[in-house]
Amino acid sequence: MSVDIDLIFKIAAIGILVAILNRVLVQSGREEIAMMTTLAGLVIVLLMVVDLINQLFQTIKSIFQLY
């Protein structure tokens, strides 16, 4: 396991934060901005894990010898 646990906690924290932000914004009638924050959270998390996904694909490729 080379993935450090910190990253998972960080993603979890961002998830909680985005969920609360979403609630607050929807409650004040700003659905569009709520949607935007959700998307922004998704993009941030994706940027954080893009390296790991890349690693995953490399591993799969090397397992099935698809060079």
């Binding site: 924290a13 961002i14 934060l17 932000l21 607050v24 004040s28 009638g29 941030i44």
Partner: peptide, 22 residues
């Protein structure tokens, strides 16, 4: 409509920045 929203937004935005750079 807006008073509590901006209060919450400030705190949550700060938390978000803190998490991102931690």
């Amino acid at each position: 409509k807006n008073q509590r929203l901006y209060n919450n937004l400030g705190i949550l935005g700060g938390l978000g920045i803190a998490i991102l750079i931690l």
